[in-house]
Nucleic acid binder design. Structure first.
Lengths: 131, 131
DNA sequence: GAAGATAGTGTTATAATATAACAAATTATT
DNA sequence: AATAATTTGTTATATTATAACACTATCTTC
C-alpha cells in the first residue's frame, strides 16, 4: 500500500528541492554531488528518488540531455511532456500550449489507435543565446 | 573538404548496413558486437560512424531507448523526427503523418519564434503486444 | 499494539552508454 | 609528390544507470 499521507520521503524531498532550485535541467550525478551534504552518498539513492518523483509527476526527464527538471505545474497533459530546449545552452522550458497538447493527445496511429503517452522535445535558441 | 563522391566510408557502411537489417532500434554496443567480425572492435569506431550517419540523416537516435534506427526514407521533415514506440517490446516505427509534421514544424514559441528541430516520441502498445 | 506486508534506505559492486586523446593510415586537393 | 583533411585503430577513461542484499521505517489488518 501507499504512504498514507501520500507525502514524499526525506530523500525524495531533498532531491526534488534541489531540482526545483535549479533553473536548468540537472544531471543525476550533479544532483548527487550537490545533496551529498544532506546524506545522499550513492547513485541509487538519487536514482530511486528520481524514479518516484517522475512517477508522481513532480519531475520530468529530458531524454536528449539525460537530465531532470521539476514540473512547472503547468502540465496540461498528464501523459505527455513538451519541452523547448536551447541547443546552445541547454536552457529548458516546459511548454504549455493547449492546442499542441490536445493535438498530440488526440493523435492516433494508422490503425486509429490512440497513444498512451508522448514526449516532445523542441530545439531552438533561447533569448539570451540569440543576443 | 568532403569525400568527393559524398559516399559513406567503409565503417559507416558496415554500421548502417547492420542497422538497416535490424527491425528494431539497436544499441551501440549491440552494433559493436555484431559487426566485430567486420573489423570494428572498439566503441569509438561505432559511435563515430553513428555520428556521421545521424548527421547525414540515414540514422536517427531514439533518445528514450538510447538506441538507433535507420531512417525509413519517409522522413517528411528534415529537422524533425516522429517515432511510435511500443512500451512493451520497444518496437519502433517512424511516423509519417503530414499533418502532424506540419503542425510541429510550424509550431512557434510564446514569442512567435519557430523552432529549428524537434523530436517526438509517442508511446503505445504495438499490434503484436496487444494480442 | 503485534504480525505481516510494503516501501524506502544505505551500501557495495558493476553494468551500460559514451567520449577524450593520440598516433597511424587513407583519401582529396594543390 | 607535398600538403591538407578525414578516417581509422587503439587505449584509456568518463558518464549514466542498475543489480543485489541487508536493514529500517511505515502502513494495514487483525
Amino acid at each position: 500500500m501507499k504512504n498514507k499521507k501520500n507525502e514524499l520521503t526525506k530523500n525524495q524531498k531533498i532531491v526534488l528541492d534541489f531540482i526545483q532550485k535549479s533553473n536548468k535541467p540537472v544531471k543525476a550525478y550533479s544532483i548527487l554531488s550537490n545533496v551529498s551534504k544532506k546524506g545522499l552518498k550513492a547513485p541509487p539513492q538519487v536514482y530511486r528518488a528520481l524514479e518516484k518523483l517522475i512517477e508522481v509527476g513532480e519531475v520530468h526527464k529530458i531524454e536528449s540531455l539525460n537530465s531532470f527538471v521539476a514540473c512547472n505545474s503547468k502540465c496540461i497533459e498528464p501523459n505527455g511532456t513538451i519541452f523547448s530546449i536551447c541547443k546552445s545552452c541547454d536552457q529548458t522550458t516546459e511548454v504549455s500550449n493547449a492546442d499542441l497538447a490536445k493535438f498530440l493527445s488526440d493523435f492516433k496511429d494508422m490503425n486509429g489507435t490512440q497513444f498512451s503517452g508522448f514526449n516532445l522535445e523542441l530545439f531552438g535558441t533561447c533569448k539570451s543565446c540569440k543576443t
